[in-house]
Design a protein around this nucleic acid. Structure first.
Length: 327
DNA sequence: ACTCTATGCCTACTTACGTCA
DNA sequence: GGTGACGTAAGTAGGCATAGA
C-alpha cells in the first residue's frame, strides 16, 4: 500500500522513485549475502549507510508493499473504532485492499458520529487535524469530557494515558517505550505476513502484545519507513555502480574513437579494392557487422537475404544488463 | 450532480529517549 | 561516569480517498 500512496502523493522523492524503478527489478536480490557499504547518505535522516544481510531480510517484505491496500468507511478510527464504527465498504482506495466486515469490531454506534463530542472536536480540526485525531482518540473513552475546553481535553489525555499502561504522558517528559524481544519478534512476524494492518488485525495484535493499537500502528509505520529507507540505500548503491560502469564504458569508447580517428588520418586517400569484408551478426543487436574494411558491406548485405537490415533500434550499452553482452 | 466537511490512513519528516561502544 | 552515535518509539504536518450531509 505504501507504494500505492507513493504514486499519488506529492512525494518529495517521487523523482528518485521514478529513476529507481528502473533498477528495482534487477536490484531486488542484490544485497542479500554481503555487506554493502555506501558513501551515499540518504538525507535527511539516514543514520546508517551500511546494508547488511539483516537489512536484506528487512527488505523482503517490501516486495509485497505494493500488493496490498485498504480502505474502509469513515469512522474507522484505529484506537477507538469500537466507539465509532458504523459500516465497512470496500473501496479501491489504498490499492484495492478489501476488508470484510469481519475485519472490524461490530459494535458500531451510528449516533456517535454526530455526537456533541464529535462536533466539538471537529470545530477544532482545521489547524491540526492529526492532533485532533489523537485528542479524540484518547478522550473518546470519557464522554463526560466531550464538551471540555482544549486544555481540559489535554488534561484528560494525560490522565487517560496514565491509566493506560502506566505511561506518564507529561508533555515535558515523554517516556519512551522499549518493546520486548518477544513483542518485536511477533510484530516482525506479522509484518512479514502483511506490511499493513487492517483494524481488526491491529486490535488483535495489540491485544496479543498487550499494547495499545496506536502503538502497533506506529510500529508498522516506522517499520515501513525503515524498509523503504533500506531499499532506497540499496537502490542508490546499485545506481552508483551503474554510473561507474557507464563512466568506464564511455571512457573506453572515447579512447576507441580517438584511435579510429588517428587511424583514419594515417590511411592513404586511395584505398584499393579489398576483399569482401567478413560479415558477422552481432549477438546483441542482431545487426550485420562488417569485420574488416574496404568492400561495401552494405552491398554485400543487400545480397544476403538472410541478414535483416530492418531498422532496429541499435543496441545501446545498458548498465542494467550484463555489460559483457554489449557489442 | 456537485460541493463541502469530517474522517481515516498514509508518508515524510522530526523529536526525544534508550542503549551501547 | 560522561559522551556521542545510533536505533527507534512517538509526534507532527500535509495529502489523498471516501462517505455523508
Amino acid at each position: 500500500m505504501g507504494l500505492h500512496h507513493d504514486s499519488t502523493h506529492n512525494n518529495n522523492n517521487i523523482g528518485l522513485h521514478l529513476v529507481l524503478g528502473l533498477a528495482l527489478s534487477s536490484s531486488s536480490d542484490s544485497p542479500t549475502q554481503e555487506t554493502i557499504t555506501t558513501s551515499t547518505k540518504i538525507p535527511p535522516y539516514s543514520s546508517s549507510s551500511t546494508v547488511t544481510t539483516d537489512d536484506a531480510e528487512l527488505l523482503l517484505p517490501s516486495l509485497t508493499l505494493a500488493l496490498s491496500g485498504h480502505d474502509v468507511n469513515k469512522n474507522k478510527n484505529d484506537d477507538t473504532q469500537e466507539h465509532h464504527r458504523v459500516q465497512v465498504v470496500p473501496t479501491k482506495a489504498n490499492n484495492n485492499k478489501v476488508y470484510s466486515s469481519e475485519d472490524y469490531p461490530s459494535t458500531g454506534d451510528v449516533s456517535a458520529q454526530n455526537s456533541p463530542h464529535h462536533s466539538a472536536v471537529s470545530s477544532f480540526s482545521s489547524g491540526c487535524r492529526r492532533g485532533v485525531k489523537r485528542e479524540r482518540d484518547v478522550s473518546a473513552s470519557d464522554e463526560a469530557e466531550a464538551e471540555a475546553t482544549e486544555i481540559e481535553r489535554l488534561s484528560s489525555r494525560i490522565s487517560d494515558e496514565e491509566e493506560d499502561g502506566g505511561t506518564t504522558a507529561s508533555a515535558a517528559a515523554r517516556k519512551k517505550l522499549r518493546l520486548t524481544k518477544e513483542q518485536s519478534a511477533l510484530l516482525e512476524d506479522s509484518f512479514k505476513q502483511h506490511s499493513t494492518l487492517n483494524p481488526k488485525q491491529k486490535q488483535a495484535l495489540a491485544k496479543q502484545l498487550n499494547l495499545r493499537p496506536r502503538q502497533v500502528e506506529v510500529w508498522f509505520q516506522n517499520r515501513r519507513a525503515r524498509t523503504k529507507l533500506k531499499q532506497t540505500e540499496v537502490d542508490c548503491e546499485f545506481l552508483k555502480k551503474c554510473c561507474e560502469t557507464l563512466t568506464d564504458e564511455n571512457r573506453r569508447l572515447q579512447k576507441e574513437l580517438q584511435e579510429l580517428k588517428a587511424l583514419k588520418l594515417s590511411q592513404p586517400l586511395y584505398m584499393p579494392p579489398m576483399p569482401a569484408a567478413t560479415l558477422t551478426i552481432c549477438p546483441s543487436c542482431d545487426r550485420a557487422v562488417a569485420i574488416g574494411s574496404g568492400g561495401s558491406a552494405s552491398n554485400n548485405i543487400k545480397n544476403t537475404p538472410l541478414i535483416s537490415l530492418a531498422p532496429k533500434p541499435h543496441h545501446f550499452f545498458s548498465p542494467f544488463t550484463n555489460p559483457s553482452a554489449a557489442c
